[in-house]
């Protein structure tokens, strides 16, 4: 322990500084996308949803496709996505986002249609709709938020819950001999010929966020090709239901989640596919 005494200096002298810079004098290096609604979000601190919402809206802004984009929100934490994204959206029944998106896209093939779904929504109750939509090669983008728990209902076991992971419905940890192993959605769906681009990313670090942004940008850019479904699985932080701090949650993804859900591209379009592009 230091015994050195810190003596506070006397009163701060009043300095005669020039006035602060006005806003115009600064160079704008970052701004919230204009395609976001300016409001307070309901998400918990450290949650991945708000960040991924923003990334999608950045893509919509950068591609200038606000007029051509229709989103489908799921049942789950992101059920209110249409309160935050300044685009036309439909709220689907639990698990049915891909069927709803099929109805939209088949009638408006020139629009950019995406679904935004959690693991309970997509991989449990809605896996049939998801699998068949991808098998048909629906020209939609599926943004799949995988945080290994049911968030909205406060932390029950999901189809993607890690082996041994404690949730409110697997209090002793997920027993794979009883409930089976977590479903690796991206790998499963990549097997379908209708899948055009399948990748798994995360948003737990600045680098990861940049890679996710790139993946989303690609997934949206591929839509006009009419070559099939793009699936972007994103490992999401859920500090509230993981009972962790946001920092611990980010670390948990690197140390535990990626063992079951390795990050990276799983299916990428070949050079032949990209010829028209």
């Amino acid at each position: 322990m230091s015994t050195e005494q810190h003596i506070l200096p006397g009163p701060v002298p009043v300095l005669n500084l020039p006035p602060c810079h006005t806003e115009e004098e600064y160079e704008m290096v970052y701004h919230k996308p204009a395609t976001m609604v300016d409001t307070t979000m309901h998400y918990c601190p450290g949650c991945a949803h708000s960040l991924v919402h923003k990334l999608i809206m950045e893509v919509v802004e950068e591609l200038d496709i606000q007029e051509k984009t229709v989103g489908v929100a799921p049942v789950g934490c992101s059920v209110f996505a249409y309160d935050y994204m300044d685009i036309d959206m439909q709220e689907a029944a639990h698990g049915r986002a891909c069927a709803v998106a099929t109805g939209i896209k088949r009638l408006m093939p020139d629009k950019y249609v995406f679904t935004y779904q959690g693991d309970g929504d997509l991989a449990a109750i809605g896996i049939a709709e998801t699998l068949h939509a991808i098998n048909r090669g629906e020209n939609i983008c599926i943004v799949f938020m995988n945080n290994a728990v049911y968030g909205m209902t406060s932390g029950q076991m999901a189809p993607t819950t890690l082996p041994g992971m404690h949730t409110t419905t697997s209090p002793d940890g997920r027993d794979v001999s009883y409930y089976g192993a977590p479903i690796k959605v991206a790998e499963l769906m990549a097997n379908l010929p209708g899948a055009f681009y399948v990748t798994r990313q995360a948003v737990n670090s600045a680098n990861a966020v940049r890679r996710t942004k790139k993946a989303l940008l690609n997934a949206f850019k591929y839509q006009p090709l009419h070559k099939g479904t793009c699936l972007v699985e994103i490992i999401g932080n859920c500090p509230s239901n993981w009972k962790m701090t946001p920092v611990e949650a980010s670390r948990f993804i690197d140390e535990e989640m990626v063992k079951t859900f390795p990050l990276g591209d799983i299916k990428i379009p070949g050079a032949e596919d990209m010829k028209i592009y």
Binding site: Q90, A92, A101, T102, G103, R106
Partner: peptide, 22 residues
């Protein structure tokens, strides 16, 4: 016009939802 054989009645009614919503 669009005609589609869905994977289930659950899917077909939700496709109707999407198309009607558009």
């Amino acid at each position: 016009r669009i005609v589609m054989q869905a994977e289930s009645e659950v899917a077909s009614i939700n496709m109707v939802y999407g198309a009607a919503g558009a």
